[in-house]
């Protein structure tokens, strides 16, 4: 299987430690949402899970093997990672960019197999960028670009998807589109999805499993109902709020009152 877990992870940049001694089991086939304030270490954790940050201590295990010791191409077939606001390369078309998601499956000879074509077309359709296929990426709007990046990650066709704030810069309708797409991928193909979100209510609505972080540690973990309590929100964000059921789907919804002093 593809289960990913972090074992006694200590992460940092240079001498600055951001995450210390963190252990985490990501539930298979579920959507896990990491929430936390700015600088709480959630993006850092995501980078480490995606093998892009070498832990100063501890390991990340993908299907039982240390992710830092496995060939990067092999990992790229099992795990796709979408960083926060990637720089847009000049002069590439949407199709070219989405096709990059097929890179781990290609060799110099085989660069456009039938499967590549199918996966790229489907990914573009799912992320609603098929109409833009021949446009050059740096002429697109911020929201369109974000959907192109998501299409790239989808085209990578991995059982595990890591996304860092995938819906920032999107309008509310497209936010829901993307989250619905991720949910569909999760439900239909049993993909494991791990993402960082800033919107607590969307986190609770779309997450099966919520991880609340603060100062590089996990403060609360579990189902939306167990994590989204007034006490936990206060512990994670220093925010006083009331929790009410979401009128549409019944998941917990946080109505902010003010900053805890």
């Amino acid at each position: 299987m593809t289960s990913i877990r972090a074992d006694e992870l200590t992460l940092g940049y240079g001498r600055k430690t951001v995450v210390e001694g963190l252990t985490l089991d990501v539930p298979d086939g579920a959507t896990t949402v990491i929430i936390g304030g700015n600088g709480s270490g959630k993006s850092t954790l995501l980078l480490a899970l995606g093998r892009l940050l070498v832990p100063s201590r501890g390991r990340v295990l993908l299907a039982g093997a240390d992710i830092q010791r496995s060939p990067t191409r092999e990992i790229a077939r099992r795990l796709a990672l979408l960083p926060q606001q990637p720089r847009t390369p000049e002069a590439m078309t949407v199709r070219q960019l989405v096709a990059l998601g097929r890179h781990p499956y290609q060799s110099w000879l085989a660069q456009w197999s039938q499967r590549d074509e199918r996966m790229v077309e489907r990914a573009m359709q799912r992320a609603d960028v098929a109409d833009l296929a021949d446009r050059v990426v740096d002429t697109l709007s911020g929201g369109q670009r974000q959907r192109v990046w998501i299409a790239l990650a989808v085209a990578q066709d991995t059982p595990l998807l890591l996304l860092d704030e995938p819906i920032s810069f999107l309008d509310p309708a497209h936010q829901l589109d993307v989250l619905d797409l991720l949910r569909t991928l999760n439900r239909e193909t049993r993909k494991t999805v791990v993402m960082v979100l800033h919107d607590l209510n969307l986190a609770a609505r779309y997450g099966d499993h919520i991880i609340g972080m603060r100062d590089g540690r996990i403060v609360a973990e579990g189902t939306p109902e167990t994590v989204m309590t007034a006490d936990n929100v206060r512990a994670i964000f220093d925010l006083v709020c009331r929790i009410v059921p979401d009128p549409c789907v019944g998941t917990p919804m946080c109505v902010p009152v003010g900053r805890a002093l």
Partner: peptide, 14 residues
């Protein structure tokens, strides 16, 4: 062709 991409993104696709 991949070189202008983010290091993180390029590493992400292997």
């Amino acid at each position: 062709l991949l070189a202008p991409l983010d290091d993180a993104l390029a590493a992400g696709i292997g």
